[in-house]
Write a protein that binds this DNA or RNA. Structure first.
Lengths: 271, 271
DNA sequence: AAGTGGTCTAGACCACGTT
DNA sequence: ACGTGGTCTAGACCACTTT
């Protein structure tokens, strides 16, 4: 792979990616002083995220080897490695020595409990049973629209479900998804699916959740939640508001959960 | 880099560190197959943590330059760099280009809000006022002892305080600390101190908190907390149980907080 | 100008898994 | 035996800060 050298990276990019504002050669040359300077490995990283976003490599699949990518982008293996290092640290990729580097997927025990923080006070986490109560299309409220970065009134999918552990109803989730992306999501599809919701999003809609922000509050159960969770009204519940993001940090889900924290807790680690 | 080769790392270690079980040369030579193999940079990392733990470099101070450490440990700069990279990722060290690498300290805005996750629903976080209600020595309960990895009945410092934001009491914290480490901690010392508690622990007791695990639950306020927070009994509160760790992952604090989440929330990020 | 961390390269070798 | 990621090295140069 010996191009005419200038813009080596750019020319190596698949045609669909279009032109880069700042070709890699520029960073290599060492220009740009007070400006937007971004090192080569970050440009490589951005290209890799683009490929993930485009679905060039699917969740669970291996991406090309470091050497392959290095020759493709006309950089050293070390530079590719540093790009992949960051993506692995962010859990977008998963390295397995001797085997390759794989696209992270929610169809794995490891990754599952990154997003389900409710754990039993004693014993090990048990898989939850999900019961979908409703799933329909509505016009988004201003609040949901803002969080999803769509226009107020645009169509969203609204889901309500109950999660149970060992037969005991523990979580009520209300979920909102952008309607145009999740076309064809129905109660039946949800009901027929085994495994985590984010796994379904991956395989059925090509949406990989990568990061989420949560806001937690303590509230008391009103009649509605009390009935759903079979508890007394006034029982304290942990309210969890979540906005989940896919590859380009694009918000793709809003979720409001109400957790019954009796015998369970929300675990967190401060680093 | 031509020493007499064997045990280059070990001989470079300050005398106080004593002998290493596995000298660096072993990793370099490439022995140890199914065994406990640990790469060179992790051994360097462990040595750096030892130095931090011994207080060779105090919070806020610069550690020696990468080149300096590389010659001291008889490894390449890249190996030292990788060790420091991990410590920086874990927030034990802080890199500042052109200036040096510094020991992380809680006397900084950046690091403060890593451990205080309560944020206002609108606006930017305001500094909290702390009012210490009590501070005394008691025998540890079995529960606290287990968390602090001390014997039941051993002396612990017990602190109760209230945090207020803009004059409104919002948090009640109960804190337990191992008595032998926090000798001389009194209500007066706590009262005379400005700034975060973990800053005081650093400067007065040489204890740097590095990581914490939390368990969150929703509870309702009893008469005690209701009085302290000037709210109605039965108001929902966010209960936060925290175990904080210092260098070497040694537990050094148990804390049970009760947060009033009206106008405030506990923010979290799932990566 | 000098010193620090940050990037990039090229090559050697090791550990792990598959063929 | 081969291909993958993982480690380690040595050297060049860049970006940032201070002298």
């Amino acid at each position: 792979m010996n191009s005419t050298d200038d813009n080596a990276l750019q020319s190596a990019v698949p045609a669909t990616a279009g032109g880069l504002a700042v070709p890699a050669a520029q960073a290599r040359a060492g220009r740009m002083h007070g400006a937007a300077f971004s090192p080569l490995y970050r440009q490589i990283k951005a290209l890799l995220v683009q490929s993930l976003d485009r679905g060039d490599w699917k969740p669970g699949e291996a991406i090309p080897s470091e050497m392959e990518l290095a020759t493709r982008f006309q950089v050293s293996q070390g530079t590719v490695r540093k790009a992949i290092d960051e993506l692995a640290a962010e859990h977008l990729l998963l390295r397995r020595q001797g085997k390759g580097t794989f696209v992270a997927t929610h169809h794995e025990a490891r990754v599952r409990y990154r997003f389900l923080r409710l754990a039993p006070d004693q014993g090990v986490p048990q898989p939850a049973q999900s019961q979908v109560l409703s799933c329909g299309r509505i016009r988004s409220s201003a609040e949901i629209a803002r969080a999803l970065e769509i226009r107020t009134g645009e169509q969203v999918v609204a889901i309500r479900r109950v999660l149970s552990f060992a037969g005991k109803a523990t979580v009520v989730d209300d979920i909102w998804l952008p309607g145009d992306v999740f076309r064809g999501l129905t109660t039946e599809l949800l009901g027929s699916y085994r495994g985590p919701l984010y796994g379904l999003f991956e395989t059925e809609f090509g949406v990989s959740m990568v990061r989420a922000d949560e806001k937690l509050r303590a509230v008391t159960a009103g009649d509605e939640y009390a009935t759903l969770l079979q508890i007394e009204p006034g029982t304290p519940l942990l309210q969890v508001e979540r906005v989940s993001h896919t590859y380009g940090d694009r918000p793709m889900e809003v979720r409001r959960g109400h957790y019954l924290t009796e015998g369970y807790h929300y675990r967190n680690s401060l680093n």
